[in-house]
Amino acid sequence: MAERLNTPGGEMTTDVLIQHRRNIADLKQRIRNRRLQVFGLYGTPVFVIAMLLVWAGLKIFVWLDSDTPSAINSIFGGVAFLLVLAAGAQGVAEFSSSSPWKDSETSVRKLRLELSLAEERHILEARRRTPPSMDRQASYKERLPGEIVRLRRESRHYRRVHLFMQWMLFISSAAISAVTAWYDPPQPAKGVLIALGFTVTVITAAAGYFKPRERAFNLQQTADSIEQHITAIELGIAPYGATEDRQNLELFATTVETLRAEQRMREQQLDQPQQGQQQVI
């Protein structure tokens, strides 16, 4: 397997596919930049006109019989001047012969068409240069550490959200009792009590709906299971004790995909209402 991956043809295949991915990523970034450029190019003049209309409306409906305050005139005038300068600079950058914009005078639709063609070329090239299944399974195993890092990162995120919600519940619940006991009658602290009660209600409802504790547990469990199978196949222990690497890699890929499918199913069950979860289970 190592000899097959180290052949000149294999290296050429890898370089070609990597170049296709770079072209696709570059086109996606160019589309994002071009959208911002078009939005600024046409949105800035519209915003200038809208702001001038607001300025005129304030003069007509608020200060018709008196002078507009100098502070209002300074604010609107200064912002309008800056926006006009920005609109002029964007116009020069768009239509000048030596434009600093890479895709000046190019529509977003044309870039999206180039992206679609690049993705199609990548698919056709990958299909034509598809390596053997054993090589793909070995590459799949090498990509899994990144998947484990992602699962654990999301698990830590949901665990922190859960802990934050719990501490907010503890503090708010304790504060309600403390404020109620401190003020008798609780008239001066009625606003505080209302805010604390609202906080407790919102956090309780959010924790019951989003279930961050369950999500963190499921993600951590899946990450630990995948890591256990990686360790098993690297050490050659059960269930990966076959003499041929092909059998071990095939069993490994099947097992890990099953674990990931179970994780996605658990996520879908958590996104459903309680009644829907019971029906699915």
Rank of each mutant, 00 (worst) to 15 (best):
V149N: 11
A189H: 04
F210N: 10
L219V: 05
A195M: 04
L169T: 11
L193S: 03
R143N: 12
L163A: 10
P188I: 00
V202L: 11
R143K: 12
I226M: 07
A181Q: 14
E142H: 09
Q228Y: 11
R136K: 08
A223M: 02
R215A: 13
K211L: 07
F210H: 14
E154R: 09
L219S: 06
S172W: 00
A181K: 13
D135Q: 05
I194S: 09
D224S: 09
S177F: 13
S173K: 07
P185C: 03
T231I: 03
W182H: 11
Y209M: 08
R215H: 15
V179C: 09
S172T: 13
I233V: 06
A206G: 12
G191T: 10
M165N: 14
R152G: 05
A205I: 13
P145I: 06
A174V: 05
V149M: 12
S177T: 12
L163G: 04
G191E: 13
A181Y: 14
T180G: 10
H229G: 01
P186L: 00
F164T: 12
T180S: 14
A138G: 03
G197M: 04
H229Q: 15
T199W: 00
A195D: 09
T204L: 06
Y140N: 04
S177L: 12
S177W: 10
V179H: 10
L235G: 02
Y140I: 03
P212K: 02
L169D: 07
G208T: 00
R159L: 14
Q228D: 12
R156G: 03
R213P: 03
R160P: 02
Y140A: 02
R160F: 08
G146P: 01
I176Y: 02
V179A: 13
A181I: 09
R152D: 13
H162M: 10
A232Y: 03
R150M: 10
T180I: 04
I171C: 08
M165E: 11
I226D: 07
D135C: 02
A205H: 05
Q137E: 14
G208M: 00
I203S: 11
Q187K: 11
H162E: 15
